[in-house]
Write a protein that binds this DNA or RNA. Structure first.
Lengths: 212, 212
DNA sequence: CGATGGTTTAACTGACTGGTTAGTTTAGGA
DNA sequence: TCCTAAACTAACCAGTCAGTTAAACCATCG
Protein backbone atom coordinates (compact mmCIF):
# COMPACT_ATOMS: atom_id res chain seq x y z
CA UNK A 1 0.00 0.00 0.00
CA UNK A 2 2.91 2.33 0.67
CA UNK A 3 5.71 1.88 -1.76
CA UNK A 4 7.13 5.20 -0.64
CA UNK A 5 10.34 6.27 -2.24
CA UNK A 6 12.16 5.63 1.02
CA UNK A 7 10.87 2.09 1.37
CA UNK A 8 11.75 1.38 -2.25
CA UNK A 9 15.26 2.65 -1.71
CA UNK A 10 15.58 0.59 1.42
CA UNK A 11 14.56 -2.57 -0.38
CA UNK A 12 17.01 -1.82 -3.15
CA UNK A 13 19.87 -1.33 -0.72
CA UNK A 14 18.97 -4.59 0.97
CA UNK A 15 18.98 -6.35 -2.37
CA UNK A 16 22.38 -4.89 -3.23
CA UNK A 17 23.74 -6.10 0.09
CA UNK A 18 22.46 -9.62 -0.43
CA UNK A 19 23.82 -9.73 -3.96
CA UNK A 20 27.23 -8.55 -2.78
CA UNK A 21 27.15 -11.06 0.05
CA UNK A 22 26.48 -13.82 -2.47
CA UNK A 23 29.53 -12.88 -4.46
CA UNK A 24 31.85 -12.64 -1.49
CA UNK A 25 30.60 -15.78 0.25
CA UNK A 26 30.97 -17.65 -3.04
CA UNK A 27 34.52 -16.43 -3.59
CA UNK A 28 35.83 -16.77 -0.06
CA UNK A 29 33.53 -19.13 1.82
CA UNK A 30 31.76 -18.25 5.04
CA UNK A 31 34.91 -18.13 7.13
CA UNK A 32 37.01 -16.38 4.53
CA UNK A 33 34.45 -13.73 3.71
CA UNK A 34 34.77 -10.39 5.46
CA UNK A 35 31.77 -8.22 6.22
CA UNK A 36 33.92 -5.23 5.35
CA UNK A 37 34.34 -6.51 1.79
CA UNK A 38 30.62 -7.20 1.47
CA UNK A 39 29.86 -3.64 2.52
CA UNK A 40 32.47 -2.29 0.13
CA UNK A 41 30.99 -4.10 -2.87
CA UNK A 42 27.46 -3.15 -1.96
CA UNK A 43 28.65 0.44 -1.70
CA UNK A 44 27.34 0.90 1.82
CA UNK A 45 28.73 1.41 5.27
CA UNK A 46 29.51 -1.76 7.18
CA UNK A 47 27.00 -0.97 9.87
CA UNK A 48 24.24 -0.96 7.26
CA UNK A 49 24.64 -4.70 6.88
CA UNK A 50 23.56 -5.10 10.48
CA UNK A 51 20.86 -2.48 10.12
CA UNK A 52 19.24 -3.94 7.00
CA UNK A 53 19.91 -7.65 7.33
CA UNK A 54 21.68 -8.83 10.45
CA UNK A 55 24.92 -10.45 11.46
CA UNK A 56 27.18 -12.52 9.25
CA UNK A 57 25.16 -15.72 9.69
CA UNK A 58 21.90 -13.94 8.84
CA UNK A 59 23.58 -12.44 5.79
CA UNK A 60 24.57 -15.91 4.69
CA UNK A 61 21.16 -17.44 5.33
CA UNK A 62 19.35 -14.71 3.40
CA UNK A 63 21.73 -15.03 0.49
CA UNK A 64 21.39 -18.78 0.18
CA UNK A 65 17.62 -18.73 0.56
CA UNK A 66 17.27 -16.05 -2.11
CA UNK A 67 19.37 -18.05 -4.56
CA UNK A 68 17.56 -21.29 -3.89
CA UNK A 69 14.36 -19.42 -4.54
CA UNK A 70 15.66 -18.35 -7.94
CA UNK A 71 16.50 -21.92 -8.86
CA UNK A 72 13.15 -23.16 -7.65
CA UNK A 73 11.31 -20.60 -9.74
CA UNK A 74 13.36 -21.35 -12.84
CA UNK A 75 12.89 -25.12 -12.56
CA UNK A 76 9.17 -24.78 -11.87
CA UNK A 77 8.76 -22.64 -15.00
CA UNK A 78 10.79 -25.08 -17.07
CA UNK A 79 8.76 -28.07 -15.98
CA UNK A 80 5.51 -26.25 -16.65
CA UNK A 81 6.67 -25.25 -20.14
CA UNK A 82 7.03 -28.82 -21.41
CA UNK A 83 4.74 -31.82 -21.52
CA UNK A 84 6.71 -34.56 -23.28
CA UNK A 85 8.55 -36.47 -20.52
CA UNK A 86 11.88 -36.48 -22.27
CA UNK A 87 11.81 -32.76 -23.02
CA UNK A 88 10.52 -32.00 -19.58
CA UNK A 89 13.37 -33.85 -17.93
CA UNK A 90 15.92 -32.20 -20.19
CA UNK A 91 14.52 -28.82 -19.25
CA UNK A 92 15.43 -29.21 -15.59
CA UNK A 93 19.21 -29.05 -15.94
CA UNK A 94 18.77 -26.39 -18.57
CA UNK A 95 16.88 -24.25 -16.08
CA UNK A 96 19.75 -24.66 -13.66
CA UNK A 97 22.24 -23.66 -16.30
CA UNK A 98 20.24 -20.63 -17.34
CA UNK A 99 20.01 -19.46 -13.74
CA UNK A 100 23.73 -19.96 -13.32
CA UNK A 101 24.40 -17.87 -16.40
CA UNK A 102 22.60 -14.95 -14.79
CA UNK A 103 24.30 -15.42 -11.43
CA UNK A 104 27.74 -16.92 -12.06
CA UNK A 105 28.62 -17.12 -8.39
CA UNK A 106 25.66 -19.38 -7.67
CA UNK A 107 27.27 -22.82 -8.12
CA UNK A 108 30.18 -21.80 -5.98
CA UNK A 109 27.86 -20.64 -3.24
CA UNK A 110 25.79 -23.81 -3.39
CA UNK A 111 28.76 -26.13 -3.38
CA UNK A 112 30.21 -24.31 -0.41
CA UNK A 113 26.94 -24.46 1.42
CA UNK A 114 26.58 -28.20 0.86
CA UNK A 115 30.18 -28.73 1.91
CA UNK A 116 29.57 -26.75 5.08
CA UNK A 117 26.74 -29.08 6.03
CA UNK A 118 24.34 -26.20 6.34
CA UNK A 119 24.77 -25.04 9.94
CA UNK A 120 23.58 -21.61 8.83
CA UNK A 121 20.85 -22.87 6.53
CA UNK A 122 17.40 -21.70 7.60
CA UNK A 123 14.50 -24.12 7.28
CA UNK A 124 13.12 -22.01 4.43
CA UNK A 125 16.18 -22.85 2.35
CA UNK A 126 15.75 -26.56 3.01
CA UNK A 127 12.11 -26.26 1.99
CA UNK A 128 13.11 -24.69 -1.34
CA UNK A 129 15.50 -27.58 -1.96
CA UNK A 130 12.80 -30.10 -1.17
CA UNK A 131 10.40 -28.37 -3.56
CA UNK A 132 12.87 -28.59 -6.44
CA UNK A 133 13.46 -32.25 -5.68
CA UNK A 134 9.72 -32.83 -5.79
CA UNK A 135 9.62 -31.31 -9.27
CA UNK A 136 12.19 -33.81 -10.52
CA UNK A 137 10.33 -36.64 -8.82
CA UNK A 138 7.03 -35.59 -10.38
CA UNK A 139 8.61 -35.41 -13.83
CA UNK A 140 10.08 -38.88 -13.45
CA UNK A 141 6.82 -40.28 -12.15
CA UNK A 142 4.83 -38.75 -14.98
CA UNK A 143 7.30 -40.16 -17.49
CA UNK A 144 7.02 -43.62 -15.98
CA UNK A 145 3.22 -43.53 -16.01
CA UNK A 146 3.33 -42.64 -19.68
CA UNK A 147 5.70 -45.55 -20.34
CA UNK A 148 8.48 -43.25 -21.51
CA UNK A 149 10.75 -43.80 -18.51
CA UNK A 150 11.78 -46.76 -16.47
CA UNK A 151 11.11 -46.42 -12.74
CA UNK A 152 14.24 -45.02 -11.16
CA UNK A 153 14.91 -43.62 -7.71
CA UNK A 154 13.93 -39.94 -7.97
CA UNK A 155 16.01 -38.97 -4.96
CA UNK A 156 19.20 -40.38 -6.43
CA UNK A 157 18.43 -39.03 -9.88
CA UNK A 158 17.86 -35.53 -8.61
CA UNK A 159 20.97 -35.50 -6.44
CA UNK A 160 22.95 -36.82 -9.37
CA UNK A 161 21.74 -34.09 -11.74
CA UNK A 162 22.22 -31.27 -9.30
CA UNK A 163 25.49 -32.56 -7.89
CA UNK A 164 27.02 -33.21 -11.27
CA UNK A 165 25.93 -29.81 -12.60
CA UNK A 166 27.22 -27.85 -9.63
CA UNK A 167 30.45 -29.79 -9.67
CA UNK A 168 30.93 -29.27 -13.40
CA UNK A 169 30.19 -25.58 -13.18
CA UNK A 170 32.96 -25.19 -10.64
CA UNK A 171 35.37 -27.62 -12.27
CA UNK A 172 35.20 -25.62 -15.49
CA UNK A 173 37.28 -22.94 -13.84
CA UNK A 174 40.15 -25.40 -13.64
CA UNK A 175 39.99 -26.09 -17.36
CA UNK A 176 42.89 -23.83 -18.21
CA UNK A 177 45.23 -25.46 -15.75
CA UNK A 178 44.51 -28.90 -17.21
CA UNK A 179 45.42 -27.84 -20.72
CA UNK A 180 48.97 -29.19 -20.45
CA UNK A 181 48.12 -32.58 -19.01
CA UNK A 182 44.90 -33.65 -20.74
CA UNK A 183 43.59 -33.52 -24.28
CA UNK A 184 41.11 -30.66 -24.30
CA UNK A 185 37.74 -32.37 -24.03
CA UNK A 186 35.36 -31.57 -26.82
CA UNK A 187 32.28 -31.05 -24.68
CA UNK A 188 34.03 -28.63 -22.36
CA UNK A 189 34.63 -26.10 -25.10
CA UNK A 190 30.94 -25.25 -25.30
CA UNK A 191 30.74 -24.34 -21.64
CA UNK A 192 28.26 -25.52 -19.06
CA UNK A 193 25.36 -25.74 -21.53
CA UNK A 194 27.23 -28.25 -23.61
CA UNK A 195 28.32 -30.30 -20.60
CA UNK A 196 24.78 -30.33 -19.29
CA UNK A 197 23.24 -31.47 -22.56
CA UNK A 198 25.86 -34.18 -22.97
CA UNK A 199 25.23 -35.40 -19.45
CA UNK A 200 21.47 -35.60 -19.75
CA UNK A 201 21.81 -37.49 -23.04
CA UNK A 202 24.07 -40.06 -21.38
CA UNK A 203 21.74 -40.53 -18.44
CA UNK A 204 18.60 -40.77 -20.56
CA UNK A 205 19.87 -43.44 -22.91
CA UNK A 206 22.46 -45.10 -20.72
CA UNK A 207 26.04 -46.12 -21.24
CA UNK A 208 25.48 -49.82 -21.85
CA UNK A 209 24.43 -51.00 -25.28
CA UNK A 210 20.79 -51.94 -25.36
CA UNK A 211 20.14 -55.61 -24.97
CA UNK A 212 18.23 -57.18 -27.81
CA UNK B 1 69.40 -45.13 3.59
CA UNK B 2 69.07 -43.60 7.04
CA UNK B 3 65.67 -44.32 8.51
CA UNK B 4 66.97 -43.18 11.86
CA UNK B 5 64.53 -43.18 14.71
CA UNK B 6 64.47 -39.39 14.63
CA UNK B 7 63.65 -39.21 10.93
CA UNK B 8 60.89 -41.77 11.39
CA UNK B 9 59.42 -39.74 14.21
CA UNK B 10 59.63 -36.62 12.10
CA UNK B 11 57.76 -38.26 9.24
CA UNK B 12 55.11 -39.49 11.62
CA UNK B 13 54.59 -36.04 13.10
CA UNK B 14 54.31 -34.62 9.61
CA UNK B 15 51.69 -37.21 8.71
CA UNK B 16 49.73 -36.44 11.86
CA UNK B 17 49.78 -32.76 11.00
CA UNK B 18 48.54 -33.33 7.46
CA UNK B 19 45.78 -35.63 8.68
CA UNK B 20 44.65 -33.08 11.25
CA UNK B 21 44.79 -30.33 8.63
CA UNK B 22 42.54 -32.41 6.40
CA UNK B 23 39.93 -32.69 9.10
CA UNK B 24 39.96 -29.03 10.01
CA UNK B 25 40.02 -27.72 6.45
CA UNK B 26 37.13 -30.04 5.63
CA UNK B 27 35.07 -28.89 8.57
CA UNK B 28 35.75 -25.18 8.39
CA UNK B 29 37.04 -24.39 4.92
CA UNK B 30 40.33 -22.67 4.18
CA UNK B 31 39.31 -19.33 5.59
CA UNK B 32 37.48 -20.71 8.57
CA UNK B 33 40.18 -23.15 9.59
CA UNK B 34 42.58 -22.05 12.30
CA UNK B 35 46.16 -23.22 12.41
CA UNK B 36 45.84 -23.33 16.18
CA UNK B 37 43.10 -25.94 15.93
CA UNK B 38 45.12 -27.98 13.45
CA UNK B 39 48.05 -28.01 15.84
CA UNK B 40 45.80 -28.93 18.75
CA UNK B 41 44.33 -31.93 16.94
CA UNK B 42 47.74 -33.09 15.75
CA UNK B 43 48.94 -32.80 19.33
CA UNK B 44 51.85 -30.53 18.47
CA UNK B 45 52.84 -26.96 19.04
CA UNK B 46 51.62 -24.48 16.49
CA UNK B 47 55.13 -23.58 15.43
CA UNK B 48 55.72 -27.19 14.42
CA UNK B 49 53.29 -26.73 11.53
CA UNK B 50 55.61 -24.13 10.07
CA UNK B 51 58.70 -26.20 10.85
CA UNK B 52 57.46 -29.47 9.31
CA UNK B 53 55.20 -28.30 6.51
CA UNK B 54 54.95 -24.58 5.94
CA UNK B 55 52.35 -21.85 6.10
CA UNK B 56 48.60 -22.30 5.90
CA UNK B 57 48.53 -22.47 2.11
CA UNK B 58 51.27 -25.11 2.03
CA UNK B 59 49.38 -27.09 4.65
CA UNK B 60 46.31 -26.97 2.46
CA UNK B 61 48.17 -27.94 -0.70
CA UNK B 62 49.88 -30.91 0.94
CA UNK B 63 46.63 -32.10 2.42
CA UNK B 64 44.73 -31.99 -0.83
CA UNK B 65 47.50 -33.64 -2.81
CA UNK B 66 47.80 -36.46 -0.29
CA UNK B 67 44.07 -37.16 -0.45
CA UNK B 68 43.93 -37.05 -4.23
CA UNK B 69 46.77 -39.55 -4.19
CA UNK B 70 44.70 -41.88 -2.05
CA UNK B 71 41.79 -41.69 -4.45
CA UNK B 72 44.02 -42.23 -7.44
CA UNK B 73 45.55 -45.34 -5.87
CA UNK B 74 42.18 -46.77 -4.92
CA UNK B 75 40.67 -46.22 -8.35
CA UNK B 76 43.72 -47.64 -10.12
CA UNK B 77 43.52 -50.78 -7.99
CA UNK B 78 39.80 -51.10 -8.62
CA UNK B 79 40.18 -50.82 -12.38
CA UNK B 80 43.00 -53.36 -12.41
CA UNK B 81 40.96 -55.82 -10.36
CA UNK B 82 38.19 -56.19 -12.95
CA UNK B 83 38.10 -57.04 -16.62
CA UNK B 84 34.43 -57.10 -17.60
CA UNK B 85 33.59 -53.54 -18.73
CA UNK B 86 30.42 -53.27 -16.72
CA UNK B 87 32.04 -54.49 -13.52
CA UNK B 88 35.08 -52.35 -14.13
CA UNK B 89 33.01 -49.22 -14.52
CA UNK B 90 30.99 -50.04 -11.43
CA UNK B 91 34.22 -50.48 -9.49
CA UNK B 92 35.25 -46.85 -9.97
CA UNK B 93 32.57 -45.21 -7.83
CA UNK B 94 32.92 -48.06 -5.36
CA UNK B 95 36.60 -47.24 -4.98
CA UNK B 96 35.65 -43.66 -4.26
CA UNK B 97 33.14 -44.74 -1.68
CA UNK B 98 35.58 -47.10 0.00
CA UNK B 99 38.18 -44.37 0.25
CA UNK B 100 35.59 -42.02 1.68
CA UNK B 101 34.66 -44.58 4.30
CA UNK B 102 38.24 -44.59 5.55
CA UNK B 103 38.55 -40.82 5.45
CA UNK B 104 35.11 -39.34 6.08
CA UNK B 105 36.30 -35.77 5.74
CA UNK B 106 37.48 -36.36 2.19
CA UNK B 107 34.35 -35.40 0.22
CA UNK B 108 34.00 -32.24 2.21
CA UNK B 109 37.59 -31.31 1.53
CA UNK B 110 37.29 -32.04 -2.17
CA UNK B 111 34.05 -30.13 -2.58
CA UNK B 112 35.50 -27.13 -0.82
CA UNK B 113 38.60 -27.27 -2.94
CA UNK B 114 36.62 -27.39 -6.17
CA UNK B 115 34.43 -24.56 -4.95
CA UNK B 116 37.49 -22.51 -4.14
CA UNK B 117 38.68 -22.81 -7.71
CA UNK B 118 41.98 -24.23 -6.56
CA UNK B 119 44.14 -21.16 -6.02
CA UNK B 120 46.19 -23.20 -3.56
CA UNK B 121 46.23 -26.37 -5.66
CA UNK B 122 49.74 -27.42 -6.63
CA UNK B 123 50.28 -28.84 -10.11
CA UNK B 124 50.87 -32.26 -8.58
CA UNK B 125 47.29 -32.31 -7.34
CA UNK B 126 45.96 -31.44 -10.78
CA UNK B 127 48.07 -34.24 -12.24
CA UNK B 128 46.50 -36.73 -9.83
CA UNK B 129 43.05 -35.61 -10.91
CA UNK B 130 43.96 -35.96 -14.56
CA UNK B 131 45.28 -39.49 -13.94
CA UNK B 132 42.00 -40.57 -12.35
CA UNK B 133 40.08 -39.11 -15.24
CA UNK B 134 42.25 -41.06 -17.64
CA UNK B 135 41.33 -44.27 -15.82
CA UNK B 136 37.64 -43.60 -16.38
CA UNK B 137 38.30 -42.73 -20.00
CA UNK B 138 40.29 -45.92 -20.55
CA UNK B 139 37.55 -48.03 -18.99
CA UNK B 140 34.91 -46.44 -21.21
CA UNK B 141 37.07 -46.84 -24.30
CA UNK B 142 37.77 -50.48 -23.54
CA UNK B 143 34.07 -51.11 -23.03
CA UNK B 144 33.23 -49.46 -26.32
CA UNK B 145 35.83 -51.50 -28.22
CA UNK B 146 34.34 -54.64 -26.77
CA UNK B 147 30.87 -53.55 -27.87
CA UNK B 148 29.62 -53.42 -24.29
CA UNK B 149 29.29 -49.63 -24.11
CA UNK B 150 28.08 -46.93 -26.42
CA UNK B 151 30.62 -44.22 -27.12
CA UNK B 152 30.04 -41.46 -24.60
CA UNK B 153 32.08 -38.41 -23.69
CA UNK B 154 34.56 -39.67 -21.05
CA UNK B 155 35.18 -36.21 -19.70
CA UNK B 156 31.53 -35.56 -18.98
CA UNK B 157 30.99 -39.07 -17.66
CA UNK B 158 33.85 -38.80 -15.24
CA UNK B 159 32.87 -35.36 -13.99
CA UNK B 160 29.33 -36.59 -13.57
CA UNK B 161 30.35 -39.61 -11.49
CA UNK B 162 32.75 -37.75 -9.28
CA UNK B 163 30.60 -34.67 -8.93
CA UNK B 164 27.48 -36.61 -8.11
CA UNK B 165 29.30 -38.80 -5.59
CA UNK B 166 30.98 -35.93 -3.79
CA UNK B 167 27.75 -33.98 -3.75
CA UNK B 168 25.77 -36.94 -2.42
CA UNK B 169 28.31 -37.70 0.26
CA UNK B 170 27.94 -34.18 1.57
CA UNK B 171 24.21 -33.93 1.05
CA UNK B 172 23.69 -37.01 3.19
CA UNK B 173 24.49 -34.94 6.23
CA UNK B 174 21.36 -32.90 5.59
CA UNK B 175 19.19 -35.99 5.55
CA UNK B 176 17.97 -35.55 9.09
CA UNK B 177 16.77 -32.00 8.51
CA UNK B 178 14.73 -33.09 5.48
CA UNK B 179 12.86 -35.73 7.44
CA UNK B 180 9.87 -33.46 8.08
CA UNK B 181 9.43 -32.19 4.54
CA UNK B 182 10.15 -35.17 2.30
CA UNK B 183 9.30 -38.86 2.36
CA UNK B 184 12.44 -40.60 3.51
CA UNK B 185 14.01 -41.88 0.30
CA UNK B 186 14.64 -45.60 0.22
CA UNK B 187 18.12 -45.47 -1.29
CA UNK B 188 19.36 -42.97 1.26
CA UNK B 189 18.89 -45.33 4.17
CA UNK B 190 21.75 -47.53 2.99
CA UNK B 191 24.21 -44.67 3.04
CA UNK B 192 26.62 -43.65 0.33
CA UNK B 193 27.22 -47.20 -0.91
CA UNK B 194 23.57 -47.60 -1.71
CA UNK B 195 23.32 -44.20 -3.37
CA UNK B 196 26.38 -44.94 -5.45
CA UNK B 197 25.14 -48.32 -6.64
CA UNK B 198 21.74 -46.89 -7.50
CA UNK B 199 23.32 -44.09 -9.44
CA UNK B 200 25.62 -46.27 -11.50
CA UNK B 201 22.72 -48.57 -12.33
CA UNK B 202 20.70 -45.63 -13.61
CA UNK B 203 23.54 -44.32 -15.72
CA UNK B 204 24.47 -47.70 -17.17
CA UNK B 205 21.01 -48.61 -18.36
CA UNK B 206 19.51 -45.17 -18.79
CA UNK B 207 16.27 -43.61 -17.72
CA UNK B 208 14.42 -43.88 -21.00
CA UNK B 209 12.76 -47.14 -21.93
CA UNK B 210 14.71 -48.98 -24.60
CA UNK B 211 13.39 -48.48 -28.07
CA UNK B 212 12.48 -51.68 -29.82
C1' DC C 1 82.01 -35.51 29.40
C1' DG C 2 80.71 -31.79 26.16
C1' DA C 3 79.70 -30.11 21.72
C1' DT C 4 76.57 -30.29 17.80
C1' DG C 5 72.35 -29.79 15.18
C1' DG C 6 67.72 -31.13 14.48
C1' DT C 7 63.44 -30.53 17.20
C1' DT C 8 60.18 -28.36 20.34
C1' DT C 9 58.23 -24.83 23.23
C1' DA C 10 56.04 -20.53 25.19
C1' DA C 11 55.70 -15.96 24.55
C1' DC C 12 54.95 -12.44 21.51
C1' DT C 13 53.43 -9.21 17.54
C1' DG C 14 50.87 -6.54 14.50
C1' DA C 15 47.25 -6.88 11.47
C1' DC C 16 42.63 -7.79 11.04
C1' DT C 17 37.97 -9.65 12.57
C1' DG C 18 32.88 -9.23 13.52
C1' DG C 19 30.13 -6.36 15.86
C1' DT C 20 28.56 -2.01 18.46
C1' DT C 21 27.53 2.73 19.43
C1' DA C 22 27.17 7.60 19.75
C1' DG C 23 26.16 10.89 16.92
C1' DT C 24 24.83 13.05 12.13
C1' DT C 25 22.10 13.48 8.00
C1' DT C 26 17.98 13.04 5.29
C1' DA C 27 13.11 12.40 3.98
C1' DG C 28 8.23 13.10 4.75
C1' DG C 29 4.16 14.21 7.25
C1' DA C 30 1.70 17.67 10.21
C1' DT D 1 8.55 25.37 8.97
C1' DC D 2 9.41 22.21 12.33
C1' DC D 3 9.68 17.61 14.16
C1' DT D 4 10.33 12.81 14.22
C1' DA D 5 11.90 8.55 12.76
C1' DA D 6 14.44 6.09 9.51
C1' DA D 7 18.85 5.86 7.25
C1' DC D 8 23.47 6.47 7.53
C1' DT D 9 28.48 7.36 9.15
C1' DA D 10 32.95 7.23 11.53
C1' DA D 11 35.23 5.72 15.28
C1' DC D 12 35.95 2.29 18.19
C1' DC D 13 36.14 -2.28 20.93
C1' DA D 14 37.59 -6.63 22.37
C1' DG D 15 39.06 -10.73 20.60
C1' DT D 16 41.33 -13.72 17.14
C1' DC D 17 44.27 -14.56 13.49
C1' DA D 18 48.65 -16.26 10.97
C1' DG D 19 53.12 -16.09 11.55
C1' DT D 20 57.88 -15.22 14.16
C1' DT D 21 61.51 -15.63 17.51
C1' DA D 22 64.68 -16.74 20.97
C1' DA D 23 65.52 -19.88 24.17
C1' DA D 24 65.44 -24.64 25.67
C1' DC D 25 65.40 -29.51 24.92
C1' DC D 26 67.52 -33.94 23.69
C1' DA D 27 69.52 -37.62 21.02
C1' DT D 28 73.63 -38.48 18.85
C1' DC D 29 78.59 -38.70 18.23
C1' DG D 30 83.55 -37.35 19.03
Amino acid sequence: MKPTRAAQHSAEVRARIIEAAGEVFAECGFGGAGVHEIARRAGVNKAMLYYHVGDKAALFGETVTANLGRIHAAVAAAVAAHTAPRERLKAIPRAFVATVREHPYLPQLMLREIAAGGPNLPAAALAEMAEVMRLTAATLDDGARRRAFRRVDPFVTHLMFVGALMFMANALRLKGRFANMLPIPAAAAGGLESLSDTMIAIVLDGIAVKKA
